[in-house]
Design a protein around this nucleic acid. Structure first.
Length: 439
RNA sequence: CGGAGUGUGGCUCAGUCUGGUAGAGCACCGCGUUCGGGACGCGGGGGUCGCAGGUUCAAAUCCUGCCACUCCGACCA
């Protein structure tokens, strides 16, 4: 992409409404535009990152055996009356009336609808296990939206729902999602720690929150340092096998809890040198809630014995849009964002220090073509801005590599390659720079 | 939902107390000089001062009502 043809409205000054660093940087980097309290338009740069995150989530869900579908944002109130949650949910639910005076709502989550879909088609244990998920916009009418995408009213969420015949199979399904979550967040360059959680309005007893550690996190967390060293399951993890040992490692060996469920006495049993008090951002939550919805909504399956029983369910959410904020909170410096390679909106920022000068233009075009061929998605700054402004802009938007081409270096047969995360610079021939980026 | 604030050009803000024909910096457009870490000069465009009433010869400024947004707290992917 050529910057001269792109839409990247950078802000030099910080808009006054933004309090936390991720919100400030997203606004300054031209990723986001607030349209109302907690409601945002995703500008091209932000949209690209959102898509990258979505794709990682999708790949890991698919790998774990979940099947994607897409449910609507609007739902009939009657469905929620079946589960009893229409009244329970309160003012956070955005309620709408259509022209026929039918009660609708903008979905804050989809347990009811997925249960309705399931019961319409599935009768037999032979169709199980089944896990259906979608990535769809949700709306929760927060009393006080804030922190940009960290707590918006409209947000993009991946929600998966598992269906199993009995509790043991249901817990195995829960474990598959648990492992998939460990992998998903790790791929985005995040340290996400699963912690015992209260299940809140979703219900159920088995639940974990996945918390990203960041200084600006919304809640206090307490954990054993050693949990940070646990290995993330690899790409080759066997989702058909027993995942309980992995889950047990992450949930049973070391203390980790949010302030809601923190138990100081148990925490005190951890060696003082291993005790860590930090702040965290919740980026996902898993629930196993058995027949909480299937029983009232009569989602029954018959087992091998021919007897009907409510299907055992779990649900598994990831705050896709919130993850952008969480990643930035965890990865930035004074100059701007530092995107992990896997979610970066562009792989390389190609900076021409002197557009219009023949040799510089030629070298830039060569680099642009080569980077594109490498699949590195270069963003080519071919504008007439001064070098200083270009460097500052590139640091702000945080692409992993900066390839800087100017007349001075070219006279020596070199270009400059900068790694955004470390600030490390190498003065090398173009071919060498391309080779390093391509590794 | 309790408490506290703020609405003036795209952004950051001054002007409001003490009423008198709307300002600065950045951004934008033109020209010129510049050009390896957010340049400079000259010229220029852009604002129903959140909305609606009211007071007044005169309202960004005073009064009333409404709306939106932000912050602190209680609550949440």
């Amino acid at each position: 992409m050529r910057l001269s043809r792109y839409f990247l409205p950078l802000l030099k000054e910080t808009p006054s409404e933004a309090q936390i660093v991720s919100h400030r940087l997203m606004l300054r980097a031209g990723m986001l535009r607030q349209e109302a309290a907690g409601i945002y338009a995703w500008l091209p740069l932000g949209h690209r990152v959102l898509r990258k995150i979505e794709e990682i989530v999708r790949q890991e869900m698919d790998r774990a055996g979940a099947v994607e579908l897409l449910m609507p944002t609007l739902q009939l109130a009657d469905l929620w009356r079946e589960s009893g949650r229409y009244d329970d949910y309160g003012a956070e639910m955005l309620r709408i009336t259509d022209r026929h005076e039918r009660d609708l709502l903008y979905g804050p989550t989809n347990e009811e609808m997925i249960t309705e879909i399931f019961r319409a088609y599935v009768r037999s244990y032979k169709a199980l296990p089944l896990n259906l998920y979608h990535i769809q916009w949700k709306f929760r009418d927060e009393q006080r939206p804030r922190f940009g995408v960290m707590r918006g009213r409209e947000f993009l969420m991946k929600d998966a729902y598992s269906f199993d015949l009995d509790e043991a199979a249901g817990k195995a399904a829960y474990n598959r999602m648990f492992v998939a979550y460990l992998r998903t967040f790790a791929r985005m360059g995040l340290k996400a720690i699963p912690m015992q959680a209260e299940s809140g309005p979703i219900g159920g007893e088995l639940s974990h929150e996945f918390i990203v550690l960041a200084q600006t996190g919304e809640s206090a967390v307490y954990l054993d340092r050693r949990i940070l060293e646990l290995p993330t399951p690899g790409e080759d993890v066997d989702y058909g096998g027993d995942l309980e040992p992995i889950v047990a490692d992450w949930t049973g060996r070391y203390y980790a809890a949010t302030e809601d469920v923190h138990d100081p006495e148990r925490f005190a049993q951890t060696a003082e040198t291993d005790r860590v008090t930090a702040r965290g951002i919740e980026v996902g939550q898993t629930f196993f809630f058995g027949d909480k919805y299937s029983r009232p909504m009569k989602a029954l399956v018959s087992g091998p014995d021919g007897v009907d029983r409510p299907v055992q369910m779990g649900s598994y959410g990831i705050g896709v849009s919130r993850l952008l904020g969480a990643i930035i909170e965890a990865s930035h410096d004074d100059s701007g964002i530092i995107w992990p390679d896997a979610v970066a909106p562009f792989g390389v920022g190609l900076i021409s220090l002197r557009p219009g000068e023949v040799a510089v233009d030629a070298a830039c075009e060569e680099a642009y073509a080569a980077l594109t061929a490498l699949g590195k998605e270069p963003l080519y700054d071919d504008t007439d801005d001064r070098p200083g402004a270009k460097f500052a802009a590139m640091d702000l938007i945080g692409l992993p590599w900066q390839l800087i081409i100017g007349p001075r270096g070219l006279a020596e047969g070199t270009v400059e390659l900068k790694r955004r995360a470390t600030g490390e610079r190498q003065i090398v021939p173009l071919a060498k720079a391309l080779e390093i980026i391509g590794r």
